[in-house]
Amino acid sequence: MTGVSEGESVTLEELKKKLAKFAKDRDWDQFHSPRNLLLALVGEVGELSEIFQWKGEVPKGLGDWKEEEKVHLGEELSDVLLYLVRLSDICGVDLGKAALRKIELNAIKYPVKLCKGSSKKYTNHSNNVIDNNGNSAESI
């Protein structure tokens, strides 16, 4: 039982608290250093990658996937998310706020008028120079 009703959202804060309790109940805090959590996260990203490794391009919605493949994907995505949330908590980073800030910085790097419909990296957009702090300036 998950404790979440169908259609109900879960916040990062709720996940953070559940993970902290889960680790504390098992006396695992001693193992949850930033380095260890990062390495575990990388391992889980590898497992997630293996799901897609030989499939070629995959359509949105995964319409041709078997149900057990979708369940496995959900488990691996969850592993990645959980380690990321735990790592951010141990490092004292508010992941939600950091993510919103990053979206704002990306909006500066990738202005709609220069980037719409393009997959080019921000450094390849004409008339757009971005410094190391994400500040945009018109090129000369």
Rank of each mutant, 00 (worst) to 15 (best):
N124R: 14
M1W: 07
F31R: 04
E57D: 10
G56E: 07
L12Y: 14
V112N: 02
P59C: 03
A40S: 11
A40Y: 00
W28H: 07
L100A: 07
N127M: 07
E8F: 01
S126V: 12
F22H: 14
N124V: 00
G61M: 11
A137M: 10
N36D: 13
G46H: 08
K113W: 06
T2D: 09
L95E: 12
T123R: 15
K121R: 09
K60S: 13
H32K: 00
R35S: 06
N133R: 13
K21A: 09
K97A: 15
E75T: 07
D29W: 08
I51T: 12
D27H: 08
K116H: 10
V85L: 01
P34S: 08
V45M: 15
R35I: 08
L37D: 12
I90R: 15
K17M: 06
L114M: 00
H32L: 11
D25T: 03
K18M: 09
E8I: 00
K109C: 11
E138W: 05
V42D: 13
G61D: 13
L105K: 08
V58H: 00
K113D: 10
M1C: 02
D79C: 04
P34Q: 02
N128Q: 06
S139M: 05
N127S: 13
N132Q: 13
G134C: 04
L39Q: 09
L39V: 11
L87D: 06
A107E: 13
S88P: 00
S126L: 10
W65G: 02
V129D: 09
K21Y: 02
P34M: 08
T11D: 04
V129K: 15
I108R: 11
Q53D: 10
L38C: 07
L37R: 04
H125T: 01
E104M: 07
K70L: 11
V10L: 12
E67V: 10
W54D: 14
V80G: 06
V42Q: 13
V42C: 07
L73Y: 10
G3D: 03
L105C: 02
L77R: 02
Q53K: 12
H72G: 00
K60G: 05
L41I: 04
H32S: 02
Y110R: 05
K116Y: 12
D89H: 10
L62F: 15
R86K: 11
K18S: 11
G7W: 01
K121D: 14
K109L: 01
E67I: 13
E14K: 09
S136K: 09
Y110D: 01
G7K: 03
V71H: 03
L95I: 12
R26G: 02
A99W: 09
A23G: 00
G3C: 02
K55A: 06
T2A: 04
S139Q: 05
Q30K: 15
G63W: 12
G61R: 07
V42G: 02
S78L: 08
I51S: 14
E138V: 10
T11C: 02
K120Q: 08
G43I: 04
L48K: 05
